[in-house]
Structures are given as C-alpha cells and as structure tokens.
Simulated scan of single mutants.
Amino acid sequence: MVARRPTLRPDEVADVLLPPSTVRALRSVLPSVADAAVDQIIHEVPAYEDAFGGPMGETIRSAVQLALGGFLSLVSDRRGPDALAPRAGALDAAYQLGRGEVRSGRTSDALLSAYRIGARVCWERLAAKAVEEGMDPATMASFAALVFAYIDELSAASVAGHRDESATAGRMQQRMMERLARHLLGGAAEATVLASAERAAWAPPTTLTAVIAPESRAGTLQQMLRKGTLLVTDLPELDGVALLLVPDAHDSRRAALLRVVRDTDCLVGPPRPWLEARASYDRALRARALGLSGDTEEHLPLLVLTADESALADLRRRALAPLAELRPSSAEKLRETLRCWLLHQGRRDDVAAAMFVHPQTIRYRMNQLRELFGDALDDPDTVLALTLALGAGERQA
C-alpha cells in the first residue's frame, strides 16, 4: 500500500472535467505520447539506456499508456463520489514500479529524473492535442496543474515503493550475509558455504580477516571497510562486541585496515584463506581473552607462549625449580634479573639499564643465580626452557 495523503481533491478534478470528444481525441494520441516519453527518457537518463529494449520496453510503454489513460478517466465528463477512483490502480502500479526499479539496480534519483522528463513530454504532447480540440485558456491552465499534480502523485508512489523495497532488500541482504558468516565460523561443508555465498550475491575473496569491534561501532566500521565485509552480532562467545570479516585485507592492504580501526578498541586477527576465516576469529578471540587490543600480529610471542597455559605452567615450575625455596621477594628479583639477562644476551650494562639498577647489583644477582642453577645456565636446552618460561613476563609470574 502507498502511505501518502492524496494531493488531488474532487473539487480540483471538477474544474477540469472534459467533454467526451476531447477525451477521445486525447486517448487517440496516448500510444505516441508514451513512445515519445520513453524515447526521451532513454536519451536523457543513462540508467535507462538499456532498460526499455525487448519485451520489457513494451511493458513499460503499456504502463505509461495505462497511467495516462487513468488520468483521462479522471477528467472525463462524469461526477460523483467515485471521481478519484480511476487513479487508485495507477498509484498501485507506480508503487510496484518503484519496487521493481530497486530489483533492476536503478536509484531513486534515476527514477525521479525519468518522471520529470516523462511529465514534460506528456504535457507537451497532450497540450498540443488539447489546443487542437479548442480547449479554452482557463481550462488549459487547470488542465496543466492537474497533469503535473497527477504525475507528482505517481512519482511519489514510485519513490515510496523504491524506499520500501530498498529497506526490505537491505535487511534480506544483511540476513543472508550474516548466515554466510555463521556458516564460515561454524565449519559448514564447503558446498554449503559456497551456496550461501551465491544466495547472498557475495563474491568470495582471497582472504578474510576477523575484526572484533565494539557493537556500537560495528555498523559504522562495516561501511568504512572494504565492500563485502560481513558483520555478525550476538555470537555466544562475544558480549557487547561484534565480529567483522573483512575481505582481502592482507599484505599491503592490512595497513589500511589498521588505520581504519585505530583508536576503536578493536582486535584484528590475521588474514586467512576465506574458507578458513574461523582461524582468524579464533586468534582474535584468544587475544581478547588475554586482555590484548589492536593488531594480534604484534602479540605473537605472547600468543604462542600462552597457547597451552597448562603446559606453560608446568614448564615454569620445572625450569624455575631452583628458585622455589627462596623467599617470594628474593625469588621475584632473581626471576626478573634472569629474564632480562636472557633477553639482553648477558650484556650486564644493558640489563642494569633495563632494570634501573647498578651493574654491580646485576653482577651480584647473577652470581646468586649461577650458584642456584650451576652449569645449567650454559646449557642451550636449559636456556631455551628458561626463555620460554620467563618470556611472558609479569603476565605469567
């Protein structure tokens, strides 16, 4: 239904009731008027250049004739409460035309341009015929006002149809894209995912990159990111945040993605082949569980070290066993000294600078550590175990 207040009133129509002979004369030129209007629209509006060819062109020409015929029925010499009834069918047809224009990929701007041009051509042709029939100037003026008011109603009905169809199509598209994303995350069969992508008219990219974003920013980010970005909300493992799957944000394009999400509390996973998008999402989820933010590629050492927290805890307990009998404060100082010593490859001055202590303090502590660990500090396997055990720093202390 077209939710629009009528702009034509019975008293306006009564001012332009035409005699049957004039109506017949005007009806006789409707086919040529429709053809002229369509030809001019094709000439002036590029979006319609290929729209009126073949059977579709004949259908639209017929629709124009029917709309004009409805107008002539409106101004034919008859009175009564049903004077405005003939336009109801034309308004409904105009509404459906607007919906069809969305499905054909044309904008409301193109549609309004077509109406504007069509109105001009129709008026020129109908006015010329009306003059031939001897229409007096006063009636001609009212006739002109009624023609343009009628076409304005038709265009408003078409715009309403275009708007409603656009909203419906947008919701349907978003639902289909979200269903596709859920199939990707849920490990659906490749054939199922491909069918879902086809239904969503979504061209598979080379890679997808998971971005966990605040729910309040997700919609805006989706518009700012690459075309085809998938948005999923209400995932059970996410609370107050949403997931974006960004196509082809790999290699040099990753920097552009990171610039867009900067200062938005987002987590950006690694790019992965599009059918393996779940791997990117899992990486971002793990980073979120660790309280991280930004680019997960900047947190790879910590993500590796914490991949198996139980194993890391066992490694720490075993590798740092020589410190177990010390007072907690002493053990903490020696543990941090050993960590810095490993990271700075034994350069005493660098270790001292990193810990803000005197180099002699480092020498004293390292002597303590050598007493506790013995020759094991020179064993590559022990050094590797200690590096891993202490690599997470205070987070795992």
Rank of each mutant, 00 (worst) to 15 (best):
V2M: 08
R4P: 04
T7S: 09
P10T: 07
V13Q: 02
L18M: 14
P20W: 14
R24G: 11
A25Q: 12
V29Q: 08
P31Q: 02
S32W: 01
A36P: 05
A36W: 08
V38L: 14
D39G: 10
I41R: 15
H43A: 15
V45W: 08
G54N: 03
G57P: 02
S62H: 11
Q65E: 14
L66T: 12
L68M: 13
L68H: 06
G69I: 05
F71S: 15
L72T: 08
S73M: 13
G80V: 00
G80W: 14
G80K: 11
A83Q: 13
A83R: 15
A88Q: 15
G89Q: 14
D92V: 11
A94R: 01
Y95S: 05
L97E: 11
R103G: 15
S104V: 05
S104Y: 10
R106G: 09
A119S: 15
R120M: 06
W123S: 11
E124Y: 01
L126F: 07
K129N: 05
E132V: 14
M140A: 15
S142C: 01
L146W: 03
Y150F: 12
L154C: 11
E165Q: 15
A167W: 03
M172V: 13
Q173G: 09
L180K: 06
A181W: 02
L185P: 01
G186H: 11
G187K: 12
A191D: 14
L194E: 14
A195D: 15
P204Y: 10
L208N: 03
T209C: 04
A210M: 05
I212S: 07
A213N: 08
S216F: 07
M224G: 00
L225V: 02
K227M: 05
L230Q: 03
L231D: 02
V232H: 09
P236W: 05
A242K: 11
L244V: 06
L244R: 02
H250C: 00
S252G: 06
L267Q: 04
V268H: 01
P273E: 10
W274Y: 15
W274G: 09
E276C: 13
E276V: 02
A277N: 04
A279V: 13
R283F: 02
R283E: 12
S293D: 11
L300W: 09
P301D: 05
P301C: 06
V304C: 06
V304G: 05
D308G: 13
E309G: 11
L312Q: 10
A313G: 13
A313K: 14
D314T: 13
L326Q: 01
P328L: 03
A331I: 00
A331H: 00
A331G: 02
K333H: 10
E336T: 00
L338T: 00
C340D: 06
L343V: 06
L343R: 10
Q345S: 12
G346E: 02
D350V: 04
A352D: 00
A352V: 01
M355Q: 14
H358E: 15
H358L: 06
Y364A: 14
M366R: 01
D375Y: 04
L388D: 10
G391H: 02
G391P: 09
G393V: 01
A397G: 09
